[in-house]
Each structure stands twice: as C-alpha cells, then as structure tokens.
Amino acid sequence: MLGRLMKYEWKYIWKKLLIFAGVLLAATGIGLVSTGLIGKLHEQDEFAAFAIGMLGFMFYYTLIMGASIGMSVIVAIRFYKSVYGEEGYVTHTLPVSGREILWSHVLVNGFAVFSVGLIMQISLSLIMNDFFRGIFDTATLPGLGGVGNNGNIYAQMLGLSGVGAWVVIVLYLAIGTLCSVMMIYASVVLGQKWKKHKVFGAVVSYILINGSMVLLSWIILIPFMIRTIMGGDFFADGPSNITGGFLWIALAIDLLYGVIMYLIVDHGLTKRLNLE
C-alpha cells in the first residue's frame, strides 16, 4: 500500500516541483548575468552596471530562498491537509497504517524538498564560482569544469575536493532534508495539541524545535571552534579546516533530530490520532 500512497502523493506534488525547478533555473540565469556584470565591470568602475549586477544578485538570492522556503511550506500544508484536514477522513479510512502514511509523505514530498535543495546547491555553486572568478584573478582559479583539488571554489570552501565533494553535498542535503521534513511534520503533530489554534501551535512548535537545534549546535560548536582557531592558523590552512569539521557535526545533529522527530510523528499518527 505504501507504493500506492506514494503514487498519489507524487500526483499532488510533481507539477509544483516542476514549477519550482523552472523558477530556480530562471533565477540561476539571472544570477549568472548579474555576476557577469559585477565581475566585468567592477574594475572599470562602471557604477551603473555594477549596481544592476548587485540588484540582480539580490533578486537571485530572494528567488532562491523563496523557492526553498516555499517548497517547505507546500510540504507542510500538504501534510496538514492530508492527515488532519477534511481529507483526513479519507486518508485514515484507507486500509493503511499511520506509519505508511508518514513514509509516503516523507519519501515523496521529502524528495521534492531534496530536489529543490539540490538544484539550489548546483545553482549556488555555479554563481559563487562565477562571482569569485570575476573578482579575483582568473589565472589562479580554474573554472567549474576542473575536477580535482583546485576545481570548484564552492567545494573548496567546504573543505572538500572534486567529485567526492558532490557526494558529500548530496548526502548532507539528503539527511538535512529528512531532518527538516521530519521537523515540519512533528510541528504539525504537536500543533494538534492546541485545541483552538492548531496552525498557530504548529508554527510555535516549529520555532521552538528549530531554536533548540540552533542552540544545541552552538553549544557543541563553540568549544570546537575555539579549539580549531587556537590550534591552527585560520588563514593559512584555508577555510576547509573550519568548515569540514562543522559539516560532520551538523550532520550528526540533523540525524539526531531526525530520529526524535520521527518518533514524535509516528506516535502521533498511530497511537494518538484523534480526528475531530
């Protein structure tokens, strides 16, 4: 039955995913044009073109962020409607378990969030590469096509190299998506506890959960950061030293939260379901 649930979830989301992909594509185009303008003209002090370039870049950034947040909102609303809305009467009388309902949402809608995230990463990587090439001397930094240590500047920033960089980025994105989707669903489930203000409750829960995650991250990262700065020369070794370690810690926190949130949602959909 999980497959069938997934089929119908996909029917709901694929068009929206396509639209978002299109928007990101268009945004990337705008972004590349903007960075091109900034890069070519910043040395020549052509202020007007530079300004347009910067505006374009800000527009690009807004679209990117909007797409990411937008997809998350869509996923949250879809879950809410399907599980707790009027459609919930149909969903919960299907011969499926609460767990199957949960996973159909996570796998399909999570995939949509992941896809948007992946396109975002590729887009950012292209833009950043272009941006840095424009500002710094192009001779010292080969372009995007290069695989290897000096390849993608973005990968370099994360302290990773070549193809391996992309594998890690994809892994990070996958786990991050899983975690963020689970957090959204858990917030919706917890929001149901507020008798009168379920949506408000969900938003508050989301803020609290996110807040606790940021707090936890800081508590773990501050001593780590201090140690790293004390131990090595930040600028000599390059950014990879800092960002590399952070990556794995962030991954671990994501996994932890993902599991906790899963337990909350699972419990909410199986033992504590009360549709009114």
Partner: peptide, 15 residues
C-alpha cells in the same frame, strides 16, 4: 489496516 479493508465509512460531512 485489516479492519479498514472491510469497513466502508460514510462520514456525516463531505470529504
């Protein structure tokens, strides 16, 4: 899931 496969439900509202 087992009981739901043999129970047909008509709710009191349109869903």
């Amino acid at each position: 899931p087992v009981s739901k496969a043999v129970v047909s439900y008509l709710p009191d509202r349109f869903c």
